[in-house]
Design a protein around this nucleic acid. Sequence first.
RNA 1: GGGCUCGUAGAUCAGCGGUAGAUCAUCCCCCUGGCACGGGGAAGGCCGCGGGUUCAAAUCCCGCCGAGUCCA
Length: 922
Amino acid sequence: MSDLEAEYRLDYFAEEDFVRKECPSCGAHFWTRDHDRELCGEPPCEDYRFIGEESFAEPRSLEEMREAFLSYFEDNGHERITPYPVAANRWRDDVLLTQASIYDFQPLVTSGQTPPPANPLCISQPCIRMQDIDNVGKTGRHTMAFEMMGHHAFNVREDAEEEYAYEGEVYWKDETVEFCDGLFESLGADLEEITYIEDPWVGGGNAGPAIEVIYKGAELATLVFMCMEQDPDGDYEMKDGNTYSFMDTYVVDTGYGLERWTWMSQGTPTVYEAVYPEMISVLKEHAGIDHTDSEAELIHRTAKLAGRMDIDEAEDMATARREIADRLDVDVDHLTALMEPLEDIYAIADHCRALAYMFGDEIVPSNVGTGYLARMVLRRTKRLVDNVGIDAPLDELVDMQAERLGYENRDTIREIVRTEEAKYRDTLERGGRKVEQLAAEYADSDKPIPTEQLLELYDSHGIQPDMVAEIAADTDATVEVPDDFYSLVAARHDDAGDDGGDADRDERFADLPETEKLYYDNQERTEFEAVVIDVFEAEDGYDVVLDQTMFYPEGGGQPADHGTLASDETVAEVTDVQLVDDVVLHRTDSDPGKGEFVRGQIDADRRRQLMAHHTATHIIGHATRQVVGDHIRQAGAQKSTDSARLDVRHYDRLAREDIKEIERVANEMVRANHSVSQEWPHRNDAEAEYGFDLYQGGIPPGTNIRLIHVGDDVQACGGTHVSRTGEIGAIKILSTEPVQDGIERITFAAGEAAIEATQATEDSLYDAADVLDVNPEDVPDTAERFFTEWKQRGKELDRLKDELAEVRATAGAEEVEIDGQSVVVQRLDSDIDELRATANALVEEGSVAVLGSGAGGSAQFVVGVPDDAGINAGEVVSELAGRVGGGGGGPPDFAQGGGPDVDALDDALDDAPEILRGVLNA
RNA sequence: GGGCUCGUAGAUCAGCGGUAGAUCAUCCCCCUGGCACGGGGAAGGCCGCGGGUUCAAAUCCCGCCGAGUCCA
């Protein structure tokens, strides 16, 4: 086992006369030009030494600092790269949001499968880190949204055996540290103040030596030398307890916090004032905050100590606040009242920026994934805004940041914020009513609202416990929130399913040659010849590997081709085709024989439908974007022969009007008979020209990517397509449904399937028209008339039954007297409603009613008893029903029952007087 | 993707095996010079849809559709 100490002995440090020291306070090793320095410089070993002073040659705004960084690295041979979206899940499925500039290049570039857009490169990448959310506003330095400036170089070792998408060494550790020094120097910093702390880095299966760059007490950059990967046999054990070994690629990954550098240059009390001064002052104005000179002075002194409010370090916020108040010798309540609105305002400014990033990069609020994170941030921001009493609408606040960040879809952003805000308002209203009910319930009892109820309110209805407390405060109900509330919530979710490991890689196909794929050459052809390279036995048939194939393997939501492989002796049916690495496997029902020549024939009708549906999917996506907005993004797609579906992200339900318009635009594209073309450009050129919207269906690996053009629409796509849109014939949207919040599924049919689907719909209409015996166009009116009439008749029937019952009760019934109580026993043979009505009428008259019916194939009883008769109707019915093989019951004054034995009904009714007597005497 | 909650009158909800209810809104009448309030009355329900259990289902069970919410 080795450690990484040698990795830090850089020539550059030696040339520049640096010394390596060990910090007596924290034990960390660091490098410095200042031979007399003792401490490493990082808090808590040392304090901030830049608040209230400009620590570079001149103060810079966020934009100026970004430009200073990028142009410095441009001057030093780096190419400036356009930032990527904050929605990192658009190109990788292991994370949701972009949290560092290196995220842009993982995993395809860092692993060497795909070339970087430039090498070396520099970038200022917008990032969002949700984990810091509780600290935002309070510590003076934490932001959820930030830009990570970085310069990256992607290197491959000279002795690497495999081939990678880039080669050789661009530069490594010495140059990286030299650049860092150079940047400081260009900004007019005091180089003696810099310390480089050795701090190995581990993350995401990779590791390497890394250096923290500290200046005047603040960590301004991290220089990571990613060069190792997790390896059970590795020689290096890192701080996560795993062992690592060196890999073929090694990558310079640096992170310079733009906001920190800006803050450092200005020396303002908090980072927020350095970064968005205008927004802060607008917010203060709206909140009506205006400080006296002495208050402002106190705030300034507090700011220097605000680092203690770090929730990760401090016991709890209240304690931290008290300590600060003690040190400043002021009343803690006074300090809290002064600071809290300010902290909220800082947080609002930051959160609005995060929201602008999210919605600007076309994240749609949802109950899953990034959409959920966006929803959480928005709701939190809304609470803060209400809390400090800012009278500006939230969409305007977010728009301020969106404008500053230069987004073009600002109208959509505002629309999303408004829609989301309205949803939240509904949730709060609903929740408020629920809480009020609960509070009323527990107001009388001395007990607090049970924890179980609080859990349900939060988990199922989204009401935070402190909101419950707030609402309950208006009543007499009390609320006690347990300290471990959120772990109790977590416990409710503890049986979270594991997603069963990845399927084992099949090693049998590893050494086979790549199958030549003919399906891209000419998508119209359906016949080809090939040599059988190998045949493997499968569970239900054979997996045939050919030297070349026209069969399209399942992928990108397009199902596999079917067809036949014919040799001189046999014809094998192909029922499935899969792509494993670069080898195409044809699943067949018989063995064509290894080494044989075969003639492949693919099912042309099936293929034509699939191609039509695939091209139609692109068209529908394009049409939807045009009709509904640029935020429309593919969330999944699946084609089949008789229909296809496209899931799109949208913040609302698609209206019927939208759907019609989408259908119209789509068919316009079909009629325009656009040519559908493919090309294989270098991915960097493709991205530069069309941007990330190319990757609707995920990001493909490789240096060159396949683009499909359908009219103005361009997508990276591996599927097969018709050659002109006119071949699709027609597109019919069959249905839309929400598959989850924020995602709408559009199901549609193309070509022949569109005709069939339309005919099927028409058939339903014609059938309905037949039943109603009207013309199809009269169906809606007639159906409505029938429905209304049907309801009216139901009411009429009820009324008549009541009438009939009254007549029966007053006229038809034979009364008997049992112990002075008049009783009517009668068989009516009508339905239970009528029996009930009659019984009610009899009871009104003061009689006990015992009614039986044999209608509907079973025996039914209703027994009604006047208030003071002293007979339990339930008992009577129960006894009667027992005699017909059933049961019954009900309240003492009105009971029902029955049983299957109709033949015994009359006997049972004959016994009724006896039973009544028995019950009366009991 | 998984868990939980909820679909009953136009709105908000109660009922949770035994005759579908309340409040507000609507309409009519009374009170008043007129309005607000107040009083009296009426109209308004495929109890989300489809199966099942039961003598009996708004109510219990299963599936579907829809809404909400928490977690990853």
